[in-house]
Amino acid sequence: MSAGKMMRPEDAAWWLGVVRATVFGLWLVKLTSGWLGTLAILPSSLLEPPFLLQAVPSAAWGLLLQPGILNGLQLATILFAALAAVGLRPYRPLAIVVAMLITFEQGLVRSYGYSNHPELFLVLATWILAFVPAADGFCRPARNAERPASEYLGAIAFIALVGCWTYAAAAAYRVAHHGFELFASDSMKHLIALNSFRFGSGASGAFVLAHPRFADAVQFLVPLTTAMELTAPLTLRSRRFLWVWLVFLFGFHVLTAISTTILFWESMLVLGAALVAFDRVTRGAA
């Protein structure tokens, strides 16, 4: 990327707007998949809120965990997320409200005994977008980009950096503490069999069990995949590697979905959008 040619602010703002629309649009998809109020049927004894939600007074939980209240919060989130996705003004207050509601709701579903990762990058990206000028482009009504191009690009780069680092962190932990098992174990056979029979039809699990040599071959993909995950942040240093890594990102998630029924589509789409935006804006300055 050359520092000599100036990026056009309109282009940079437009691509940041695309990332904004992607993030809030994904929340709309997730929020409309089912009523949050059904959580109220689960025993309250199971509720173990994370530290962030422990700011809610104990007495308030009885009021909050009513189907009507939870559904009302969900409807409000949907409304504000739709407005933020479009980039309506006043954008920042809207986005902050969405970020707060989303953080609460995602914390709530994780308060019932199991906390996993699919939406975490989305939550972090939402907060970043709430505090950067993400509604100066790709928005309605259209408006002029008022900031320098570098400010929009910096926001895009930071969202991409956070997303990439989630992959790098998982890989770094795997290499550091389970490095030997990457090669000398049947961890992939275990994972494929487990998830295939747990959440799918069992077809891929039956296949790896019936074909142990295939399972051994698949195991060799683990160190290769880990190496690619670890180098994710380097996509911000090399445009060529960025596109290689994007191909890996989509291929990895599709193959993982087929074999283990696990698909982090949220991370895939948001990080993909951020990296494509980063490339397109910096290409304009090349």
Binding site: H117, T166, A169, A170, Y173, R174, H177, D186
Partner: peptide, 10 residues
């Protein structure tokens, strides 16, 4: 949170 996915063999 920690991101420790597909780490090791249970």
């Amino acid at each position: 949170v920690a991101w420790r996915m597909y780490s090791g063999r249970p």
